[in-house]
Nucleic acid binder design. Structure first.
Lengths: 191, 191, 191, 191
DNA sequence: AATGAATGAGACTTCATTCAT
DNA sequence: AATGAATGAAGTCTCATTCAT
């Protein structure tokens, strides 16, 4: 599934891998993408070498973080798609849930949105396309049922996500703002 | 004016300063925030030392770039505010014109994650507040006249701008997409 | 025998040891001294830990490789010494045979600059001295019989061997060149 | 001429460059090719950054060292070629002088002979070919005049040089040995 | 005031070696 | 005994900033 390290064998290795990913999430959220691999290692309580054993480059680690996000969003989209035949309801549900999730992970979201590291982006490309596919179907369905603006397109979804990140960057009271913000978006997209 | 270098003395110094700012715009648009001060200097056809004479740190240079943008947007907002008494029309005009300007400057928007460099952001804070003030008045007026959602707030404006940047990052056909995107936003914000 | 691991206990341990030495020969021939212990382990189909069980350090492994070479050359020298009473003939035979053997093992000769790793050299010192002793006798005998330049000395033998390595490094057609080269040497050393 | 940095402008920059090259010569002679760039910088009394300003990589610095050697040898060969019409005398002169020079710089010679770093070798390739050309002419002339073995070829020259390095590695009394060694070689190559 | 060479802290990554399983 | 994951010191190189010319 993941673009790196399909299945770590040993239990302790897998545990380490998870600790590293969690540490990376915290560290990059805290200090931005320019945080160092040594910091990630320290927070994960492992040596740098271990970080590099699991992720061959910093970009790979960053990519895994992005890929995880994409996978989670895709999962949400799939769940909503299965839950109702109404395309708009499904899309709205996906949007609200995803925004809420992003709000909970606000800082990282903000840091990540604009990743300059082309290599990291490339490593999450597969997951990004999957997400695009799932959300694209939601959009098409909603538009076919005449409940969504026909001019909206999948490519606009990242823009919404970025906007969510920006709202969060502007204020501390993230959850409230995200809730408020999602209403504008939904009203703007309805047919 | 800018937070740095209130009044340049010599004519050639002023000319250098301008060349540096232009070079910075080009270079950061091309290569993103990780572009080097040496690159800026080379493109500006001056030594690095000269760049540092005008801007004491990289963050200061970046800050000046942001401040310039803020000043331009504030100028647009002021013009629309003077042009019509209808708050919503003024806001809509401001939004369309600003989005269009950002679309024209797409590469820079794409490449730069301004919020990444906290120090640079801080240095453009004054200009940001001025912009906030002007746009805030537009919003209040439009809301007082009952033509804008009362839940929209100035703090949400950066989110919209970020979203515009994201639309551009997602596609090459930037101008078209920005036009399309502004419609969603306007419909989402109308009362 | 070797300076490490005087008597391997188990049959499988001995087999492992051999596999490691062979793997090391291949890997170092391929990639030079900068080849990694992990590579040796992988080629030998054992874990790194096993490599370290047999050879406490990389230098020890390298030393064993050198020692093996020295032992083989000494064996050749001994055989020629026993075969004829004519010192020069014995020396010439030894030289031709050794050069030919080195030519056959050209890649390793090319890739490995044995003398670079002082520690490895130290670990093969015993074998080197033995080889020196045997060859020294050959030389003395040839000189006593007036058939070899009296100024030639055992210490010059490594120089010849190094030269053979260099001939190989310079060309692909190693065997031919080595043959050609040995003639110069022999003519240069004859009284 | 050099493969890197054709002409440093400033006097102090050129002085630094020379100091770096000298330091590199000492440091690599002392500690082998695995000596660190930081060491070179320290011995040259400059920052590492300065070393990297003059030589973009370690391989480039190593390459320059090799190139310098090749240039010096070529210079010697040219001088002898111009000095006498007798090809053999010229070659013998070149050989004796070069061997003596190598003896004076024995340790570096030894370290360098076997450089594994393909990149460094590549960077001195141009100079190596020039040297080959000049020496090749010497050899051809000597062979045409019937005074040198017809089977000797330019490609064998590196072998001789390597051998000189090896003689030196084997003993401390380098100059003496080199003198003794050159006699064997000369006798071996004469027709 | 301008230049660009110099600086050096700090970033990423490697790899010989150790040690828990 | 064997395994291979973990370790972390050490190495190469970068780049914002300073400073002699």
């Amino acid at each position: 599934m993941s673009s790196t390290e399909p299945k770590p064998q040993r239990a302790d290795a897998r545990r380490n891998r998870e600790r590293i990913v969690e540490a990376a999430r915290d560290v990059f959220a805290e200090a931005g993408l320019q945080a160092q691999m040594d910091d990630v290692a320290r927070v994960a309580c492992v040596g740098v070498g271990t970080v590099y054993r699991h992720f061959p480059t910093k970009a790979a680690l960053l990519g895994e973080l992005m890929a995880t996000k994409f996978r989670q969003h895709a999962e949400v989209a799939r769940r909503w798609a299965a839950q109702t035949d109404d395309g708009w309801d499904a899309f709205e549900g996906f949007l609200r849930e995803t925004f809420a999730a992003m709000a909970r992970d606000a800082t990282l979201q903000q840091r990540m949105n604009w990743t300059q590291d082309g290599d990291a982006v490339a490593r999450a490309e597969a997951e990004r396309q999957i997400l695009s596919g799932v959300v694209g179907e939601l959009i098409e369905r909603a538009q076919a049922q005449g409940r969504m603006r026909p001019t909206f397109a999948v490519q606009d979804v990242p823009a919404l996500m970025c906007a969510v990140g920006a709202v969060m960057a502007a204020r501390e009271s993230a959850p409230i703002d995200a809730d408020r913000f999602v209403e504008f978006v939904i009203d703007g997209l309805r047919a």
